[in-house]
Amino acid sequence: MKRILLFVVLLTSLLSSCGDDEITRDAERFGYQYYPLAIGNYWIFNVTENKYVRDAISQTSTYQKREWIDATVTDQTGREWYRVQISRRNTASDAWMVSGVKLISMSSSDLRIQENNQTTVQMIFPVKNGNSFISNAFRNEDHDKPVYYTYADLGSIFTEAGNTYDNTVTLLQGDTDTQLEYQEKYEVYAAGKGPVNRTDKHYFYCDDSTGEQCPYGEEYIVNGTDKLEVLESSGKME
């Protein structure tokens, strides 16, 4: 029994000593390359948002969003977080206006995003097709309603807006398709690039079974929204 306990202690110490070293030692096997983090890294997205009322687009917004890692901070537990400055501009010729901040932290086991005082588990490692995990485990509300994220299409080629990415993974974040509601939410990550596509659609269909107020069972959107973020460029600012 003493030998078994000693082995467990030694094994635990070994795993603890390895820890985040695995990020640099075997990044490709674990999937860390799908979200490269370093001070100076930035991503610029072309964003289109639509609002729907009575089965028609009532409002459309187009703009650019930039996410730029400008610093690192350490929390009380010693965990390091990258500070991401979020900016927005209406056109490519306009000046950037800061609109918010979020924090991103990567360990050997997961990647977390903290925004508006809420922490989301955005990825777990290793990245494997079909793997699901609870994304809202650290949230203050909805503990009885776990939200699952699932990996899909690992290693697939993804093409959009004239750009082709040879090695991507899709993170499924929401999937509802009923007679009354449709939701499709996912993100696509490219190796060495990070997020290249964010899609979020949520429509509420006609719920009047008599058909008097609206066409029932015909995917008539009473109200809803969709949002598409497409990577325009990325790089590093010194």
Rank of each mutant, 00 (worst) to 15 (best):
E80P: 02
Q118H: 04
W43R: 03
V73Q: 13
Y42K: 12
I134D: 09
F45A: 07
Q114S: 13
Y35S: 10
T74C: 03
V98D: 00
N117E: 07
N129D: 05
N116L: 09
K51P: 09
Y82N: 00
D144C: 09
W68Q: 12
T48F: 09
G31T: 01
N50W: 14
A137H: 13
A27H: 06
R79W: 02
D70P: 06
D144Y: 11
Q85K: 11
S61E: 15
G100S: 01
P36K: 04
V101Y: 14
H143C: 15
K145N: 11
N50F: 15
Y34V: 07
S99G: 06
N50T: 13
A95V: 01
N46F: 10
M106K: 05
T119Y: 05
F45N: 08
G40H: 05
K51T: 15
K102C: 03
Y34D: 03
R83W: 03
M97I: 12
P146V: 07
S87E: 00
K128W: 04
Y63Q: 14
V47P: 10
A56I: 06
Q85F: 08
I69G: 06
P126R: 02
R112Q: 11
G130W: 00
G31Y: 04
F138Q: 09
V127D: 01
D70T: 10
S132E: 10
K51L: 12
Q33N: 11
T72W: 06
S61Y: 12
N140R: 12
S61T: 15
F45D: 05
S107T: 15
G31W: 04
E115M: 11
V53Q: 11
W43F: 10
I57Y: 08
V73G: 15
L111T: 01
D75H: 02
R83M: 04
V73Y: 11
K65N: 11
T91D: 07
R112I: 11
R112P: 04
T74S: 02
Q85E: 14
W68A: 12
Y35T: 08
W81D: 03
I39G: 11
K65Q: 10
W96N: 00
R139F: 09
W81C: 00
Y63P: 14
E141P: 07
T120H: 06
V127P: 02
P126H: 02
N90M: 07
S135F: 02
T77M: 07
T62A: 13
E115K: 12
D55Q: 09
